[in-house]
Design a protein around this nucleic acid. Structure first.
Length: 951
RNA sequence: GCAGGGGUACCCGAGUUGGUCAAAGGGGCCGGACUUAAGCUCCGGUGCUUAGUGCUUCAUGGGUUCGAAUCCCAUCCCCUGCACCA
């Protein structure tokens, strides 16, 4: 067969599409399987990361169809967002145009790969038929009390001219452009996601996410249990509320520290001699760069604010400081400082000469008099408590005792704090979903009534480079409207939504993508989303934000009665990184652009070596999918991607491996070619091939079900091919056997290489499309283990024979022409079957083996007694490093022995093959003792391990 | 610093409920068959040693065990995330 992947692949893609084989509808008679990939932002072309993501998903979708599942496998685009807006600005167009041309380009790339999407469910979040449901969801959120508008200091990126969410700020820099972020106070829209903090955290224990994702989410939610304690300020009505996880150290608090941004700071020191240094500290902290911050971490800095507070537990007067290490946004932005038991407070106290007091005992031996050199941060019994009833308590008892006392005195209470913040939803950008709210002078903020949705983005906006701010603000016909409640003049909200909002429920919309009356129908979503999306595949970069928002959305919509399920994704697979070689300097520990291959390090001048680095534009080590497809075809690229590494592992790009996978395609084609056109010619090896096929299929289904695609491909595209070649080599050439084998094998080729599999399927005479097939699951045959074991026996003889032959050549003066095989004598086999019988009943060979062998018939002959004993031992006990054979024989091997199968006969039946494999003219075989003991090998002969001599 | 994941032969990579493990599979390399030749395909070899034995190997050093790549302890190194979170 001539292999022209370009022709074959396009042809089958058209057939699939014409037949609509991937279109899924609800079918209660089948188990459903919802296979989903994180939908892409349409940025021009598909890159290799996409190829990997979708090749994994498509293989699983196709596999599950073969397994008879009703598979939902949709694709759409997360098409709102800044790149389109920026591109429009640059070229003076509209983001809508840019977006649509990008979508059609990436879609055609995906189609060229042959992914089996149900394209009828296509959606793009920037299309009004999607985002109008964003607005509807927003109204529902609002009605559920989960929307809030409040002033907030926001992270502002001057360059991108936008607000950034906390999680879009990395080390005080914009995640997109890297510019330093500044703070600005604005009225903002929030989604009160923190209402669900506990459920989002607790349910992590029950869902099948990778450990690192769970860890990141736990970390992000950051729940900690502790106490809120109010410290009254002396000569003031103000209270300093602090949050602590260590109320058991309350008596060790020797000062209070506020974050420099804390509103109380100014109040306390205003107009005093302390004011200026506080202002200095605050300003310094506000504009610290990432680099400075990291250095600052080492040095605790602070200023006294000139005032004191009262420790409510012991009435003690303690100074109030502002400190650079207190985080304004966590807890209350104020801490009680316990230098004896917190290292940061300890460092601070050392620097400012404050009292360090130990109120927990570290261990009994340690003399409490010696001045401490560090804080003891562990738990221990309370000591030195100035109030009765606390000394001696430790851990949770101590904490609870303090919390109880605080609650009695009404100076505090036990509480829980979270690191998770409400979701800042609003963006001052054009290319997003307009927030459906109206500002009326008399009625305030009024939601847009449902019947007036959608609030559409105007298409008559012209973008240009020098433009700043949100073009919606200056678009009069958009802004000017009437108040829905009083009818008076009003203005539309011009903020749009964070694009993470769009991707927070798209998986439910996919279930019912064409619904024109609601975001989705409940029954439809309950069917497809039952137990969540069955397999969700995407990048680790969405571990926190997207996945957390999506989990939140599913819970909120569940509570709003829209769906049953509370966790959207039951199994998450995060595909590993794609790496490719890049120039690397060992000394500087840095990677350079591929232009520097074989040059010297640009910074230190030493010769560059190379190493694998994440594929990236900046290193230039990317590989173009289009180029690879045009050279090798989609099937080869898919095979390489799936066989190169398991989905979650990192993967190295290798041109030679890709070429090798392409050659593998030729091997497969050759194999199928050799199978068609055979005639009826049954032989003994037919059974073996059938047994192998059954075993392979069983194993394949097992590993594929577990998304171990690499192992699956190894079976379907490598092992089964080797089996076929072995079959041919062993003289197999039966038409019926070959056809049965192909019928079982070809479907297994489809998940990874669907086009060539279809081609094969048609070639062996099936008129129907393979993609429609539900694969018949083969029942294992009771004789399989024996058949496989017998063939294995031959293989082992050949492999040890080959090894021995090279050794024999050194010892032989003459040309080797013959192999003499002496199989195990009957008495050894008898010992072996005896041991197998005993082993089945858990006989204790160590304890009773010796006395047992002495009772056996074979032991009676004194001349062979020693040999019998030795054989018995190697069967049952084994030597120092090897266990007795009884433990290592496989089921089939035990069967050969206990059924008394004649090894010599088996070898004789295959002697031609053995002779050719061992490159000898003839094979002589007999049971040891029944012929000449050539080379003294009869002693070595053992059940299943005959003595082999070359002469 | 904290958390998660790792370190396996020339390279990638499987194997981690202890024995069937000198360790799957692939790449590369070497050799053979086929072919006029190339390509493609097929077969074999790829730690050292040896008529089937023995030795040294799974980051390093200890330990448990009759027996460890696999279990325990310590150390070193790499990746990823969070980072003064009270």
């Amino acid at each position: 067969m001539v292999y022209d992947p370009q022709e074959i692949e396009l042809r089958w893609q058209k057939e699939w599409s014409d037949a609509g084989v991937f279109e899924a509808e609800i079918d209660e008679s089948k188990p459903k399987f919802y296979c989903l990939e994180m939908f892409p932002y349409p940025s021009g072309h598909m890159h290799m990361g996409h190829v990997r993501n979708y090749s994994i998903g498509d293989a699983m979708a196709r596999f599950q169809r073969l397994m008879g599942k009703n598979v939902l496998y949709p694709m759409g685009y997360d098409s709102f967002g800044m790149p389109a807006e920026n591109a429009a600005k640059k070229d003076g167009g509209h983001p809508n145009d840019v977006t649509h041309s990008n979508i059609s380009s990436i879609r055609s790339d995906q189609e060229r790969m042959g992914y089996s999407y149900d394209w009828r469910r296509f959606l793009a979040t920037s299309n009004v038929d999607y985002y109008r449901w964003n607005q509807e969801m927003f109204l529902i959120l609002n009605e559920s009390g989960l929307i809030e508008r409040r002033m907030a200091p926001v992270n502002w990126c001057v360059d991108c001219d936008t607000v950034l969410a906390n999680e879009q700020v990395k080390n005080n820099r914009c995640w997109r452009c890297g510019l330093e972020v500044v703070q600005r106070d604005m009225a903002q829209w929030f989604v009160r996601m923190t209402e669900y903090s506990d459920e989002l955290l607790d349910e992590l224990d029950r869902i099948s996410f990778p450990e690192n994702v769970k860890a990141m989410q736990r970390n992000w939610i950051g729940r900690s249990h502790g106490a809120h304690i109010d410290f009254p300020v002396i000569d003031s009505d103000s209270l300093i509320g602090v949050f602590t996880t260590r109320p058991d150290t309350i008596f060790g608090a020797t000062f209070v520290t506020l974050s420099p941004e804390h509103p109380l700071c100014e109040e306390l020191c205003l107009g005093t001699e302390w004011e200026q240094q506080w202002r200095n500290l605050r300003d310094e902290c506000a504009k610290m760069s990432e680099f400075e911050r990291i250095n600052m971490l080492k040095e605790k800095k602070g200023v006294f604010l000139g005032r004191h507070a009262i420790n409510p537990m012991n009435g003690e007067k303690i100074p109030i400081y502002a400190g650079n290490f207190v985080v304004a946004s966590y807890g209350t932005g104020a801490v009680m400082a316990v230098p004896g038991h917190d290292q940061r407070d300890f460092d601070f106290a050392k620097a400012y000469n404050l009292e360090i007091r130990q109120v927990l005992q570290e261990n009994e031996e340690l003399a409490p008099t010696s001045p401490p050199v560090r804080a003891f941060e562990g738990y221990g019994p309370m000591i030195n408590s100035p109030v009765e009833g606390f000394d001696g308590l430790s851990g949770d008892d101590a904490k609870n005792a303090v919390i109880n006392a605080l609650e009695v005195k009404k100076h505090g209470y036990g509480t829980v704090e979270y690191r998770l913040k409400d979701w800042l939803l609003s963006r001052q950008r054009f290319w997003g979903t307009p927030i459906p709210m109206i500002h009326c002078k008399s009625c305030g903020v009024v939601p847009v009534p449902r019947e007036n949705l959608p609030v559409e983005l105007p298409l008559d906006v012209v973008f240009s480079e020098d433009q700043s701010g949100n073009p919606l603000e200056s678009h009069n016909s958009f802004v000017q409207t009437n108040c829905p409640s009083c009818g008076g003049d009003a203005k539309r909200e011009t903020d749009t939504m964070d694009t993470f909002y769009d991707s927070s429920w798209y998986f439910m919309r996919f279930c019912d993508a064409k619904n024109e009356t609601s975001p989705f129908n409940r029954e439809v979503v309950d069917y497809w989303m039952g137990d969540g999306v069955d397999l969700y595949i995407g990048g680790i970069e969405h571990a926190v934000m997207h996945l957390l928002y999506a989990r939140f959305f599913t819970k909120f919509s569940r509570d709003a009665g829209m769906n049953e399920v509370g966790e959207p994704f039951s199994r998450l697979v995060c595909q590993g990184m794609l790496n490719a070689p890049a120039p690397y300097c060992v000394d500087c520990n840095s990677e350079y652009h591929v232009d520097n291959f074989d040059l010297d390090c640009p910074s230190c001048g030493k010769p560059l070596s190379r190493r694998q680095a994440k594929m990236s534009k900046s290193l230039g080590n990317t590989v173009s999918p289009e180029e690879m497809i045009s050279r090798f075809g989609a099937d080869t690229v898919r095979l390489f991607i799936l066989f190169g590494a398991n989905p979650e592992a990192g993967m190295e790009w290798s041109d030679s491996a890709l070429e090798a996978n392409h050659r593998q395609m030729f091997s497969l084609i050759d194999a199928v070619d050799s199978a068609v056109g055979l005639s009826d010619y049954p032989s003994d090896i037919d059974d073996w091939l059938m047994s192998r096929m059954r075993a392979s299929q069983e194993k394949w289904i097992e590993v594929m079900s577990d998304v171990s695609l690499r192992e699956g491909v190894m079976i379907s595209h490598f092992e089964m091919l080797s089996d076929w070649n072995w079959y041919l080599r062993r003289g197999g050439r039966d038409r019926v056997t070959a056809m049965t084998f192909l019928k079982g094998w070809i479907p297994m080729l489809a998940p990874a290489t669907p086009h060539i599999a279809e081609e094969f399927w048609r070639k062996v005479g099936h008129a129907d499309i393979l993609a429609k097939l539900v694969m018949p699951i083969l029942e294992p045959n009771p004789g399989d283990t024996l058949v496989l074991a017998l063939e294995n026996f031959i293989k082992k003889i050949i492999s040890s024979g080959r090894n021995l032959r090279t050794l024999a050549e050194r010892h032989s003066d003459n040309e080797i022409t013959k192999v003499v095989i002496q199989t195990s004598p009957q008495w050894k086999k008898d010992l072996a079957s005896e041991a197998i019988k005993l082993h089945k009943d858990d006989f204790d060979f160590k304890e009773k083996g010796q006395s047992h062998v002495k009772s056996l018939e074979a032991f009676k002959d004194e001349s062979t007694r020693g040999e019998v004993f030795q054989t018995w031992n190697s069967i049952t006990i084994g030597g120092k490093k090897t266990r007795g054979r009884i433990h290592t024989w496989l089921d089939g091997e035990r069967e050969i022995i206990s059924k008394g199968i004649n090894e010599a006969e088996v070898i004789k039946d295959n002697s031609d093959f053995i002779a050719s494999a061992l490159e000898v003219e003839s094979v002589e075989v007999y049971v040891a003792g029944e012929g000449e003991d050539v080379g003294g090998k009869s002693r070595i002969s053992f059940p299943l391990e005959p003595g082999i001599a070359f002469v």
